[in-house]
Simulated assay, not measured.
Amino acid sequence: MTQAPTPATPDILCIGSVLWDIIGRSNLEMRVGSDVPGRITRLPGGVAMNIAMTLARFGMRPAALSAVGRDAEGNELVAACAQLGLITDHLYRSEDLPTDRYMAIEGANGLIAAIADAHSLEAAGDKILRPLLDGTLGSEAVPYTGPVALDGNLKLSLLTEIATHPAFDKADLRVAPASPGKAERLRPFMTHSRGTLYVNLEEASILCQEEFSSSAEAADALLARGAARVLVTDGGSSATVADQDGSCTQAPPVVTVARVTGAGDTFMAAHIVAEARGEDRDTALASALRAAATYVSGEPPV
């Protein structure tokens, strides 16, 4: 009898949305109601997926924990994930939930509109966490000890469980909202002072319920409200990394913007990789900003 291959050991877990990105791009400025020529692409996406793809390009071996349907789109997506260097052994494959999708419209003036259909991920709930609870990757008695990139497409109840569950006590949690509209879901990580939060200025304002004029100001406010560690970005203006031991603020390189969807995920992944290489706070932030700037200019971030 032929034995099943042993699953590869991941360097990092990426928990959250793994779906198809359907992106329409035009090199013309757009507004509500615009009807312009452009290009429409379909690529593997989702916050967790975008982070994982960048991690793989930097040489890490990420494993995805998410919900993917057993429909034709899901089978195609899993195959694409494997080709991109992701470990897919731990995905929850649902018989009755369709594969999730994200649709965005981008013009020369940035993101015009987007819709995230992550209903299957939300419906799957804690089923996607089984490998971290049943001993496959970890358990409550023997918690997983490596880095975890986590996105805010999960339900608030599930994010609260991750922020408090003993099975995550030893993990290096890196958490990002899926969008400003879901920023509130990160609040449990502030309440319980667990993990590193990656947010933009708008998301920081939502979490703190006040407006900020800079990434440094927002970072200070997040720490004051309980966050253990934060990285706050403010587009092309600045980015700040801060914890109780100090902070660092830098300006990103100036580039011509060719795309925006996935830039924050690229920044987060590049920062995780930089710290895994042993870079200090200032150097790691600079490395992440360079990678994000390269990405939005239209070039691969590595």
Rank of each mutant, 00 (worst) to 15 (best):
C14T: 12
Q3I: 09
R70F: 08
L285E: 00
N109I: 04
I128E: 11
R277A: 14
D117T: 11
T196A: 07
T136R: 02
G278P: 10
L13M: 08
T266R: 02
L201N: 10
D100T: 04
V36Y: 07
R57N: 13
G226R: 04
D280A: 07
V68D: 02
C81D: 04
A204D: 03
M49T: 13
G135L: 13
A263T: 02
L121D: 02
G69D: 04
M30L: 14
R39W: 11
V296I: 15
A269F: 08
R174W: 15
A118Q: 08
S193M: 06
G135T: 10
D265A: 02
P300I: 02
T261H: 08
S94K: 12
I272R: 05
A288R: 03
H165Y: 06
P300N: 00
A104G: 03
R25A: 07
D280G: 12
Y144T: 07
E275R: 14
I115C: 01
A116V: 14
R225K: 12
T145M: 04
A108W: 09
V36I: 12
G235L: 09
G236L: 09
D220V: 14
E275W: 07
A288E: 03
A63M: 05
E210M: 14
T41V: 13
M49K: 00
A292C: 05
G33T: 04
I22Q: 06
Q3V: 10
S205K: 05
L28N: 11
E29I: 14
L207I: 13
M268N: 03
T249S: 08
F168N: 02
L111E: 06
A242N: 00
V32L: 08
L129P: 12
L13S: 04
L19R: 01
G16R: 08
S238R: 00
L132S: 03
A108C: 10
L111C: 05
K127P: 10
M1W: 15
A242T: 00
A56R: 10
K182T: 15
L86E: 03
L129V: 11
I87V: 05
K127V: 09
S157R: 09
G152R: 10
L231R: 01
M49C: 14
V18H: 08
